[in-house]
Amino acid sequence: MLIDWFTVIAQLLNFLILVWLLKRFLYQPILKAMDEREKNIAKRMQEAEAQKNEAWKEKSRYSEMAGSLEQQKESMLQKARQEAESERRRLMEAAREDHRRLRTRLHQALESERANLSRDVIRRFQEEVFGLAGKVLADLADTTMEKQMAIVFARRLENLSEEERKHLSAALQASAHSVTVNSSFSLASEQQHAIEAALEKMLPPGTEVAFKTLSEKGRFGPAGGIELTTDGYKMSWSVTDYLSTLEKRIAKILEEEIEKEPKTEKHEA
């Protein structure tokens, strides 16, 4: 007999017990756990989704903020650039102004330097020229010249202007009848006569004319000269006088020329 009915009943009971036990210890807890886990996961997913949305919002907010910041930065940079540009222009202008001023000053300094230099040069040139002239005249001062000098002196006395003549006459009257003619060389008798003749018209009668030869060079210069002295009056003629007059006049002319020059140059610049 393949089927043992007691065993069948026993196995049937066993099976039912197993069903109950497994239901109690296996299916129910597992299914419950799975359900709970699924819910849990779904909840988490939901939370994650919410957080993700939140993060997205946050992100867009930040990116917006970043955009506005960028814009702000750009505008600030633009402003700074403009300011820098204007500052640069201003500085450039100032530098240019400085440059112009300095150049002008330099120019002026150069000008004055040049003027000084040319003045110096002219002065020395003048000195040289007149020194040379004086030297030449000194070399030429021989008897003929001395004679000529005496003649010129006499002529000058004759051709005195009315005012001078009065002046001289007054001086001669006051001098107690003594007149001295000094010369750098000894005058010949005919020259002395010529001078006396010229003076005769102005001198009161009985007046002595004394002739003196002065060896001191400084008085008349290297080329020599003649002078008439009395109390309170002195009249002289010498090459040096001429030269110094001429020198003064030329110096004046040159001075004027120098004064004029920078103005014209500045105008050109």
């Binding site: 043992d4 026993a10 197993l18 036990l21 210890f25 756990a33 709970e36």
Partner: peptide, 29 residues
């Protein structure tokens, strides 16, 4: 007989195993 005894043993093993595993089930991930 052996059928019943072996069945009991199998039942014991299965239920014990299930009980041991499901005793502390995790609800987490």
């Amino acid at each position: 007989n052996a059928t019943i005894v072996i069945t009991w043993v199998l039942m014991l093993v299965m239920v014990t195993g299930a009980r041991l595993i499901t005793r502390n089930l995790s609800r987490d991930v």
